[in-house]
Design a binder for these strands. Structure first.
Length: 486
RNA sequence: GGCGCCAUAGCCAAGUGGUAAGGCAGGGGCCUGCAAAGCCCCGAUUCCCCAGUUCAAAUCUGGGUGGCGCCUCCA
């Protein structure tokens, strides 16, 4: 199947053709580890986790590199505030980041390079940039001379002359041109530093990604991704550095995700309207956040709200309730139903086919998730009103339909939990939140069962109403009465 | 000022030339002692407005209106 991706470089969807057939290298700009990650970070890493999973599902051997920026002004600032070493701060937040990612089902990437462990590569690249004539030393710093590099602005479609109006010059810097950017910053007192041909100092912000991507993926590689706000200047500068230093084209396809917004405004630290991943996970299951993030196409902005999150949560409950129902039904059917025909085979086949079609069109997770809806309806239908008395046939069909859905879910990193565990954890969480006495609920349900046995429906209904008052909803079925928190 | 994005039902959200996916909420039906859950059916003659191109436009072009982003650390 042809895989089409929207390439920021060309502003169109293009067929993704890896440089080396069967293999694909991808680099995603990772976090600067100076604080807890927010849901904007969650979106980026969930998005590209799904991209990597989908690419792998097509048979590509993917090498996914995502860095940690573990030395930077903000980290130093934080370290000074806390009276710690910069390394302590970055290590702490790397751990927190990994915890967040694990909760969200974001798989570790193949390589997670840290800037502080790649100084030799960085210094060597800066030397090559200087040698190529577009880098210059000024005082203790080294800068990239933007005007001496042809092609600067090709990703962001900016011309230097257009930038002029918004230019701001930091008087502390010794640039020849306001748009030049630092490759190397000479050490200031009390700052962490590393030796270099230009004296003690540390790398500029952009050079790390150029150096580390080349180290693990080669000087030219397939896919480079990140948040939309990195297009300029970060990615533009990476391109300039890499192409000037290596004399080769840099990344072949660029993909960028849209922002998470709050009340239709960008969420950011500077606006103070941001939620950390940890904040959100206090309130909902991590998987619900993941589902929410994937319910909008990655390039569009997504508006974060309690309502939207509740929608995703409800939908996820439906999915796990369906899967739990399938398990229960399955237990009453032949355990080895054998091979053979299926019910609704066309509908089942359409699930995976439709899903893949949507994903192959620029990773359209929103469309892809929509295509799965019929599969869950089918499972419910099969469980509640099977159109056959052939138990083996029913069992085969249930297994096949579920397998199809779970295979798609695996690519999204969704529906991967044991349904019973998910539902119990969710109920336990809600029970605690609402201060519901679970034993009391069970007692009232038992009483109601007695009343029903006596055909005293008035009493049974009173019991049900009483439970509803507590926020508990009950469901009668052949196998007894179950309950959930509303 | 420069560059760019977005506008689809009450809400969320796909769809980039061939006659509007999906979800939530709502209405009806089936099931149920009654419910709940589930399943089925119903819901935009229409895609911010105006003009144009075309046999055909939510989709393309031009012009508006409204919202947002980047150009400064930012995912």
């Amino acid at each position: 199947m042809e895989l089409r991706v929207y390439n920021t470089m060309t502003d169109r969807k293009e067929v993704l053709v890896p440089m080396v057939p069967g293999k694909l290298g991808m680099y995603v700009c990772g976090p600067t580890v100076y604080d807890m990650s927010h849901i904007g970070h969650a979106r980026v890493y969930v998005t590209f986790d799904v991209v990597a999973r989908f690419l792998r599902s097509t048979g590509l051997e993917v090498c996914y590199v995502r860095n940690f920026t573990d030395i930077d002004d903000k980290i130093i600032k934080r370290a000074n505030e806390e009276g710690r070493a910069a390394g302590e701060v970055s290590e702490r937040y790397i751990e927190e980041f990994r915890k967040d990612m694990a909760l969200l089902g974001v798989a570790p990437t193949d390589v997670e390079p840290k800037v502080t462990e790649h100084l030799p590569e960085i210094v060597a690249l800066i030397e090559r940039i200087i040698a190529s004539g577009v880098g210059y030393v000024s005082g203790k710093d080294v800068y990239f001379s933007v005007r001496d590099h042809s092609g600067y602005g090709k990703l962001s479609k900016r011309r230097l002359d257009d930038l002029e109006a918004g230019a701001r010059v930091d008087p502390n810097e010794q640039k020849r041109d306001p748009f030049d950017f630092a490759l190397w910053k000479g050490a200031k007192p009390g700052e962490p530093s590393w030796p270099s041909p230009w004296g003690e100092g540390r790398p500029g912000w952009h050079i790390e990604c150029s150096a580390m991507s080349a180290r693990y993926l080669g000087e030219t590689f397939d896919l480079h991704a990140g948040g939309k706000d990195l297009v300029f200047p970060h990615h533009e500068n990476e391109i300039a550095q890499s192409e000037a230093g290596n004399g080769k084209p840099f990344a072949r396809y660029w993909i960028h995700n849209g922002f998470v917004q709050i009340d239709n405004e960008k969420m950011s630290k500077s606006l103070g309207n941001f939620f950390t991943i940890r904040d959100v996970l206090q309130k909902v299951e991590p998987e619900a956040l993941r589902l929410f993030l994937l319910s909008t196409h990655y390039r569009n902005p997504i508006n974060f709200s309690d309502v939207a999150l509740a929608d995703a949560s409800r939908r996820l409950d439906y999915i796990y309730e369906t899967l739990a129902k399938v398990e229960e039904r399955r237990a009453a059917l032949p355990s080895e139903p054998g091979e053979g025909e299926l019910l609704e085979s066309a509908r089942i086949a359409a699930l995976g086919a439709g899903f893949n079609e949507a994903m192959a069109d620029d990773f359209n997770t929103a469309d892809a998730i929509g295509r799965l809806a019929d599969g869950f309806a089918l499972l419910n239908e099969l469980c509640e009103r099977p159109k056959t008395k052939d138990k083996a046939l029913l069992a085969r069909t249930l297994v096949a339909a579920r397998a199809e859905l779970l295979a798609c879910g695996m690519i999204l990193g969704l529906f991967t939990q044991a349904p019973g565990e998910y539902l119990l954890r969710r109920r336990t969480r809600l029970v605690a939140e609402r201060g519901i006495d679970a034993a009391e609920v069970e007692r009232q349900i038992a009483e109601r069962a007695e009343a029903r046995k006596r055909k005293d429906f008035a009493a049974a209904d009173r019991a049900r109403d009483a439970l509803k008052e507590l926020g508990v909803e009950i469901m009668d079925s052949a196998s007894g009465t179950s309950w959930k928190v509303l």
